[in-house]
């Protein structure tokens, strides 16, 4: 337990893993250093190998092949969960992701499915430097036939993991390094702190936050994953310092894009800011902006603003990393730009 009575996100994910292992004996977990007592680099698999020694496999450091091994298992009726220690290492698996995992079902004319789950933490702000801090989800976003899900500290992490394991499609469940140690702040009585929260249905819901009961809003900020607490800090500051009220949409399903909650919010607010931790160019914000202007041009009073990391590396030294990654201040300034355009 932690402050506020919320369990930490890593613990919730750990319990969810134990739950799916108990519920289904066709689930296996593969990854590096996942065995007890170590229990994974971020401790999410703790206790699992002691409880299920035959179904938790610690692997060589062979990510490029492990994606293929998991695919082969999924083709033959197992439901593997592949833990990739750092999201950066997904880069090693791209041949398997692009030319195998995402293709088998469709190119084999629906004779097979590939029900695997890849769990991996993205994100910086821990000083791990250029190859252990990235948010690479945009590289997955353009791959057809896979589901990309971003967990945030306000999502039902248990439900996301269970849904991913039950999904017949390949699912990338993107976790976040800072999120692991933070409380899983689920809405209580439809509120997180001062925000009222609406949650969509479906396996990978979106959460929409409003500090005004959805009655007043100058802009919508769409975000996901580890950027959610940053954005919530920013919109709190906008209220306190500028008396500007924003709605926040926290997606979990990034791909295939599911933007109805964004469109609904933009219909109320008339303006959109996208906020992601990955680098700007070709990012998720670009895709969302394109889709929102196609679908809701008449709702937009002002141009879409994108907040993202500078196109470059994630430096290790804290001041350099802070300068490179998007901050609450960047989100505040993007909203203020919209306000300036309006006035």
């Amino acid at each position: 337990m932690s402050a506020g009575g919320h369990r930490r996100c890593a613990q919730v994910l750990n319990e969810a893993l134990h739950e799916v292992f108990a519920a289904r004996d066709d689930v296996d977990l593969l990854g590096e250093d996942v065995l007890d007592p170590y229990g994974g680099a971020f401790k999410v698999t703790q206790g699992l190998s002691d409880a299920y020694p035959d179904r938790v496999l610690t692997t060589p450091i062979s990510e490029a092949s492990l994606f293929g091994v998991a695919a082969g298992m999924a083709l033959r009726g197992r439901r593997p969960i592949l833990e990739i220690m750092f999201g950066d290492f997904v880069a090693l698996g791209f041949d398997q992701i692009v030319n195998g995992i995402s293709k088998f079902r469709e190119m084999y004319d629906d004779q097979v499915t590939v029900p695997l789950v890849v769990r991996t933490p993205m994100g910086g702000r821990r000083g791990y430097g250029p190859t252990h801090s990235q948010s690479l989800e945009k590289l997955l976003l353009g791959v057809p036939n896979i589901v990309v899900v971003a967990a945030s500290e306000c999502h039902d992490l248990r439900a996301l993991l269970v849904a991913a394991v039950e999904d017949e499609r390949p699912v990338f469940l993107l976790e976040n390094k800072l999120m692991y140690g933070r409380p899983n702040r689920r809405p209580e009585h439809r509120h997180v702190g001062e925000f009222e929260v609406r949650e969509t249905g479906g396996p990978y819901p979106a959460l929409t936050f409003s500090a005004t009961g959805f009655s007043e809003g100058s802009a919508t900020v769409v975000t996901y994953g580890g950027m959610l607490p940053v954005v919530l800090d920013a919109v709190t500051e906008l209220v306190l310092e500028h008396e500007i009220f924003c709605e926040v949409v926290a997606l979990s399903q990034l791909a295939p894009p599911e933007l109805d909650p964004v469109l609904e919010s933009v219909a109320r607010t008339g303006a959109l800011v996208t906020a992601e931790e990955g680098t700007l160019t070709g990012g998720i914000g670009a895709e969302i902006a394109a889709r929102v202007q196609e679908a809701a041009w008449s709702d937009l009073r002002r141009p879409v603003q994108r907040v993202a990391a500078r196109d470059g590396i994630v430096p290790s030294a804290r001041p350099l990393e802070d300068a490179m990654l998007p901050s609450a201040r960047d989100v505040v300034e993007a909203v203020l730009v919209l306000e300036a355009v309006r006035s």
Binding site: G68, V69, L75, Q96, N99, G100
Partner: peptide
Amino acid sequence: HLCRGNFYSNGVLGSIVPVATGIALAEKK
């Protein structure tokens, strides 16, 4: 890129080897 019953093929060299390894792991389990 063929598939029928227990037969599969794919067009990227090397790509198939880990998948066949995973198939063996599943069948063993």
